[in-house]
Design a protein around this nucleic acid. Structure first.
Length: 281
DNA sequence: AACGTTGGCAACCGCCAACTT
DNA sequence: GAAGTTGGCGGTTGCCAACGT
């Protein structure tokens, strides 16, 4: 009946992976390719569960993973996708080929959720307040960007760097592997379309809702076209919305915050006066 | 310098759909 | 078709470094 169990629970090592274990795993996958995880601990002698091996590979060792330093554009995409998909991290990750679902999930839980909460609180306070002297500048700077905010960019740990190095070592192999070629030699857009075992994409309905073109362009024409929405440039707005759902105020703020453009844009939006009551996301 | 607290992240756990026998 | 396993996913935990007192 069925297949034998993936691994014995007895004698299985848990906890952080050592560089030695990583090298063993990477070497094995170089020779055999990812997949058939059950055979990995058996053939390598790793005292790890097959699941643990798969997780280690997909989240940290596979080539092409970008660690730390989420860009404002990536943040915008995550926020946008999360609002559309909810906590379907794997689906969200499929639109950010260099990021793992675990990474995105962690980033959401530790950074973005806080930002959202802060922003929401600020909006609620603002709405409840009868103080007409409060302006958008106060709202946004106090609500979202005070000095207690975690640094925007985070340095990778020493060991993360070493896994990055292992990933780099693999890049040559990736290029020579026909099966995996698309992961390193194609554009992110193509990666999505040709999603292979590395990108557990499950687009389905979503694919019809959001093409990568749509999403990448969120980050995209930020410099010129986005302000059209807020400046009442109907032609520009139409141009954008024909390709993308408009960014929420929050998304715009998050993107701009990092770019240091909040103040400028608030001035544009409000014309120097109190902002409109439509600040809802 | 020592201790306590907080934040970030790697890894585990449990569930479930798909698959195998 | 039933029984059992695998692989994938999201939620959660626990460790550790950074920070504050």
């Amino acid at each position: 009946m069925g297949r034998p169990p993936c691994c014995d629970k007895v004698g299985i090592k848990k906890g952080p992976w050592t560089p030695e274990e990583d090298i063993i795993l990477v070497s094995y996958i170089q020779d055999h390719g990812p997949g058939n995880w059950r055979s990995v601990p058996i053939n390598t002698g790793l005292m790890r569960c097959s699941k643990s091996c798969r997780l280690r590979w997909t989240n940290y060792l596979r080539p092409g993973i970008k660690r730390g330093n989420f860009t404002p554009q990536e943040e915008g995409m995550i926020i946008h996708l999360q609002s559309l998909l909810g906590n379907r991290w794997a689906a969200i990750a499929s639109y950010l080929p260099q990021r793992t679902d675990n990474d995105i999930k962690n980033y959401w839980n530790t950074h973005l959720k806080k930002k959202l909460k802060k922003y929401q609180t600020a909006v609620e306070n603002y709405m409840a307040s009868s103080d007409s002297s409060t302006n958008c500048h106060d709202l946004i700077t106090n609500g979202g960007t005070d000095s207690s905010m975690p640094a925007y960019f985070h340095s990778s740990s020493a060991y993360a760097s070493s896994t990055e190095n292992i990933s780099r070592l693999l890049e040559g192999w990736m290029r020579s592997s026909p099966k995996l070629n698309t992961a390193t030699t194609t554009t992110p857009e193509q990666n999505l379309i040709n999603s292979n075992s590395y990108a557990p994409a499950s687009h389905g309905v979503l694919e019809s809702m959001l093409s990568f073109d749509n999403l990448s362009s969120i980050a995209w024409e930020k410099s010129s076209a986005e302000s059209a929405i807020f400046n009442g440039d109907s032609e520009g707005k139409e141009r954008i919305e024909s390709h993308n759902p408009p960014l929420s105020m929050l998304e715009k703020w998050l993107l701009d915050e990092a770019a240091g453009q909040v103040e400028e844009d608030i001035m544009e939006i409000s014309g120097g006066d109190r902002c409109s009551d439509s600040v809802i996301f």
